[in-house]
Design a protein around this nucleic acid. Structure first.
Lengths: 193, 193
DNA sequence: ACCGTAAATGAACAATGTCAACCGAAACCC
DNA sequence: GGGTTTCGGTTGACATTGTTCATTTACGGT
């Protein structure tokens, strides 16, 4: 690994970004998280395997960082879907669709979000980011005219309903789910109907 | 690995059962599926690593078999919880609790059920077993007096709601879920209320 | 006693995550 | 400008993993 393009002084963090990008890209392509190995990621970034340890404590931490990135992307997809819609129920519908679509189109990115973490960090930035995305969902629920103290609970039910379908559809492709359209409608009708 | 207790002729399949049991037990204890390695399992069974390949095509297939076993256990837990209860809504409640309890008490066993399979078998016995467990849930829903054509959909919603909570609670321990009691009640009230 | 064959082993390979030691050049000091 | 530090990175090694192939053991019918 004779990396000629070494980063200039004080900007070593650039490699961190490159590694993150490489890992994220590989996760999008290969979709088998095991194949996103330290060596594969560093190879892709054009550096030696151990260079990763200059910027991440270990592979797990790299994945945590990827996870944050993916949470942000999911959040963006949901926000983008709700944009330009006034009726909160229609917003919910659009958000539900965007959620399932994201999970279907980026299975690797979605899966990494809900991976078990072996050593959960105390100040879990990732959980915090997930919370943010969730909060925005609750806000839409709140505008649906449900009792204010129920908005959180209903938000949870919606999220779990979406995650459940996303996860199981990916793990058990044979299961005869209602199609996404019907499912989202069904779910939201029951929860905030 | 001088295994003195070699299995008698024609009963080599007994090792298969032992390996399955070993893997299942380890998954219950360690809860990190990666640590349930071929070598660890065979070591536990008192046999050489390659002996596994006499009974399973590869590690993946071992996990699929474990998964079937765990589906059966989950199904048994749910059935056991419903036993002796007449009112279908109370049955649902008990089933929901049993489901979440199983996931909480046996996170390894639960996680293996919904793992992504890289090479999904065409005749997926596992999906079939999952379907059976699910069918029994739908039957209870049916007895709740919901329109017959809705029972399947509501069953899906219930299952997804349960799975969602089980999965996310395990992946994001920090998330402020309603406790299990309240969650189950909430979910079932909304879906079959 | 013998021998086919079912049951299992052993050595080996490539790939992985990670550690400890090392290197090269860019930036600072005088 | 020459010397020194230190940032950004590499080398080499180790233990462990899944898996293959060739080999060995011992059961059980003859």
């Amino acid at each position: 690994m004779n990396n000629v393009n070494r980063n200039p002084r004080g900007e070593g963090d650039r490699l961190r970004a490159q590694l993150l990008e490489a890992a994220t890209a590989m996760l999008a392509e290969s979709e088998d998280p095991e194949s996103v190995s330290v060596r594969a990621v560093t190879r892709r970034a054009g550096v030696s395997p151990t260079a990763l340890y200059l910027h991440f404590q270990n592979r797990e931490e790299l994945f945590r960082a990827v996870s944050e990135e993916c949470f942000a992307r999911l959040g963006a997809a949901m926000a983008g879907a709700a944009e330009g819609i006034d009726d909160p129920r229609e917003q919910l519908n659009a958000i539900g669709h965007a959620y399932l679509r994201f999970a279907r189109e980026h299975p690797g990115h979605y899966a990494v979000l809900f991976q078990r973490h072996l050593e959960p960090k105390p100040e879990d930035d990732e959980t915090k980011l997930g919370m943010e995305v969730f909060e925005s969902l609750v806000n839409v629920v709140r505008r649906c005219g449900v009792p204010d103290e129920d908005a959180f609970d209903y938000g949870v039910l919606l999220w779990m309903g979406l995650h459940g379908r996303a996860a199981v559809a990916s793990a058990m492709p044979g299961f005869p789910f209602p199609d996404e359209d019907r499912y989202v409608k069904l779910l939201e009708e029951r929860v905030v109907g």
